[in-house]
Simulated assay, not measured.
Amino acid sequence: MRAVVLAACAAMGLSGCAAERVWAPDEEVAKATYRHDGPPRLTLYTMLNNNSGAGAHTALMVNGSQRVIFDPAGSFNKSRVLPERNDVLYGITPQVEDVYTRYHARETFRVKVQKLDVSPDVARRTEQAVMSYGAVPQAMCANSTSNILAQVFPGRVNQTWSPRKLADEFAQLPGVTERVLREYDSDDNSKVLDDWNPERERVARAAN
């Protein structure tokens, strides 16, 4: 299974899969902090191959004291547009969330988006877990995310190498809603990032 996940991760172009330690300064993280007014929520993203159905990447958005994305071994923030600390991305505004999902959806991959409203305590514990997890090595996106969710939902979510298996188990939790995002852009997903105006995003954050 590990070999399959590694191959899928490579095929999707997740060049950031190596465990690279990144630690944004306190000032940048504080300035980027975004507090969403929605309920405490966990959002699991699973990127699936349109041809084989195999899972290629897993990420977890947490809406707790602030909204962050745990993007283990991901390539979305390779240009360091967002403050990042060891695979945790800060400043996840609605625009950033939209760009993140569209970045991963293209003609060869679709994105399964599963949302679960949780108690403030569950959101707090999950937020603390992703922030303290550390940099994630190559091909361990599902393994690291499921490790965290297995601690939050013991006996209901198990640690696994498979993004698809994790999504299937997460779907069994009471209250989970699900949608699938499909887009038909070419495999060169850099255009999504090129069209995104991060400077406008920075100005908007500074104005808040």
Rank of each mutant, 00 (worst) to 15 (best):
R202L: 01
D87Q: 07
D194Q: 11
T108Y: 00
S65Q: 08
S132P: 08
A105P: 00
Q128M: 08
Q66E: 13
V122E: 06
A19C: 04
Y100W: 11
V130S: 07
K165E: 13
W161V: 13
A3Q: 13
R202K: 12
K165V: 09
L42F: 08
E201M: 04
Y100I: 04
S162A: 06
E183T: 06
E97N: 12
S65N: 09
V5D: 11
E183Q: 07
T101R: 13
D188I: 00
R205M: 04
N63I: 07
P137S: 08
N51A: 12
D194Y: 03
L89D: 11
H104L: 09
W196Q: 09
F76Q: 10
R205C: 02
V130P: 03
G175A: 04
R124P: 00
D121C: 05
T177E: 03
A171M: 10
L166W: 10
D187I: 00
S75Q: 15
A105W: 01
N147Y: 10
N49T: 11
T177P: 07
M12Y: 10
N143D: 13
S79V: 14
A32T: 03
A3V: 12
Q95N: 13
R179M: 11
N147I: 06
D71L: 12
D37F: 10
D71Q: 08
K31V: 03
D26I: 14
C9W: 12
S119C: 03
A123C: 05
A142S: 11
T145E: 11
K78Y: 12
V81C: 15
L149Y: 13
V111Y: 00
A19V: 03
D71Y: 11
H104T: 06
D26Q: 10
A11C: 11
L181N: 05
L149P: 01
N143G: 15
N86Y: 06
Q66I: 01
A206M: 09
V4F: 15
T33I: 06
V68S: 02
A54R: 14
K191C: 00
S52E: 13
V62H: 02
A123G: 04
P39Q: 13
W196I: 12
I92Y: 04
A207E: 05
A32P: 02
P154K: 02
S15M: 14
A30I: 06
G155M: 01
P174G: 06
A59R: 11
V4H: 14
P25Y: 08
Y45K: 11
M12G: 09
V152I: 08
A18M: 15
L166P: 01
A32C: 02
Y103M: 07
S190D: 04
R164I: 15
G134E: 01
G16L: 13
D37T: 09
P163M: 01
A19Y: 07
D188S: 01
S79W: 15
K78D: 15
V62T: 05
R125K: 12
Y184D: 06
A8E: 15
C141A: 10
A167C: 08
Q114D: 04
V176F: 12
S119T: 09
P137R: 06
M140N: 14
T93A: 06
R164E: 14
Y45F: 15
L193M: 09
Q172W: 07
L42V: 00
V118F: 00
T101E: 14
R205T: 00
V68M: 09
L48K: 09
G38D: 01
R2W: 14
P40E: 01
G38I: 03
V88D: 00
W161A: 12
G53L: 08
I92R: 12
